[in-house]
């Protein structure tokens, strides 16, 4: 058997950098620490585990509410068209226009599906990053404008809401 003669290990890198290996390792460690801090700043745990799923839930709610709204609009337009002698009058023309306009729902649904797929991919990848050793979500530092937004703006409809029923509000005002 022919033995392959291996060159002696070179303590300097191939590019001719004459820094010793210990210096390279220290530099690498520093880079890794910096990288972990940057990745931690993205808060992959919170982003992938909480915020993106919340955004997905909002998209699902948009689709449900749009389905419901369009279904009710269609039911009314169909009822107008079903009226005997609706004929070809103005009401008929407008009812057809309503039907045609409801086509937006399909397109919105398809676009939302694309957005949801992108968010799903991002969520999966962030969860992978969050699972990597040494990556810890950084403490989030809220800016003044972010705090103002959080404290003062109405956050909009609750998922599976409303949180407080009108009947409960009415009871409070009795």
């Amino acid at each position: 058997m022919t033995s392959i003669k291996r060159p002696a290990p070179d303590l300097h890198d191939a590019a001719g950098d004459d820094r010793p290996v210990s210096s390279e390792v220290a530099s690498l460690r520093e880079s890794l620490t910096e990288l972990r801090a940057v990745v931690g700043g993205l808060a992959p745990g919170r982003m992938g585990g909480e915020r993106l799923p919340a955004a997905q839930a909002e998209i699902a709610a948009i689709r449900r509410e749009a389905d419901d709204g369009v279904s009710r609009i269609l039911t009314s337009a169909e009822a107008i068209l079903a009226v005997p002698d609706a004929g070809t009058g103005e009401a008929h023309t407008h009812a057809i226009a309503i039907l045609e306009a409801c086509g937006f729902h399909d397109l919105i649904g398809q676009r939302l599906k694309k957005v949801a797929e992108v968010l799903g991919t991002l969520e999966a990848r962030l969860n992978t990053v969050a699972g990597c050793a040494g990556v810890v979500d950084a403490e989030e530092v809220e800016t003044a404008s972010e705090r103002l937004y959080r404290e003062q703006t109405i956050k909009g409809p609750a998922l599976n809401g409303p949180e407080v029923l009108q009947s409960e509000i009415d009871l409070l005002f009795r």
């Binding site: 389905d67 279904s71 269609l74 068209l81 729902h105 399909d106 649904g109």
Partner: peptide, 17 residues
Amino acid sequence: VDDYKTTIRIVHSLLRQ
């Protein structure tokens, strides 16, 4: 044929017209 019920309803209504 459509996986969006809304589109089926719209096309059916237009066809009826």
